[in-house]
């Protein structure tokens, strides 16, 4: 089981994945051994902020600032939970 996502958790991309922007696909992609997942815009924006240092609260605040919106916490937490479930992320509680 992956750790629950809290405001003070620090998610990091799992070392088995590499995140990069692909101009040809106009998307962020997750690369892993012999495979690739094309991410939608919000998934890409969230994952690129998961550097193992920023907390979930900081990531959320940064996204809200960048896109000029509020109230993203629930969506961000739900996405991070799904990403941790899929082992894209490791989450330090």
């Amino acid at each position: 089981m992956s750790a629950p996502i809290r405001a003070e958790s620090r998610p990091a991309l799992d070392r088995r994945f590499r995140l990069q922007w692909e101009a040809a696909q106009s998307a962020h992609v997750l690369l892993y051994p012999e495979g690739m997942i094309k991410l939608n815009q919000s998934a890409g924006e969230i994952l690129k902020r998961c550097d193992g240092r920023a907390t979930v609260a900081e990531i959320t605040a940064d996204l809200e600032r960048a896109f000029g919106v509020t109230g993203l916490a629930a969506d961000v937490t739900a996405f991070l939970g799904m990403a941790a479930e899929k082992r894209w992320l490791t989450v330090v509680a």
């Binding site: 990069q20 692909e22 101009a23 040809a24 690369l31 012999e34 495979g35 690739m36």
Partner: peptide
């Protein structure tokens, strides 16, 4: 250049 990204 065309967009290839996975290389075997």
């Amino acid at each position: 250049e065309l967009g290839a990204v996975q290389l075997g």
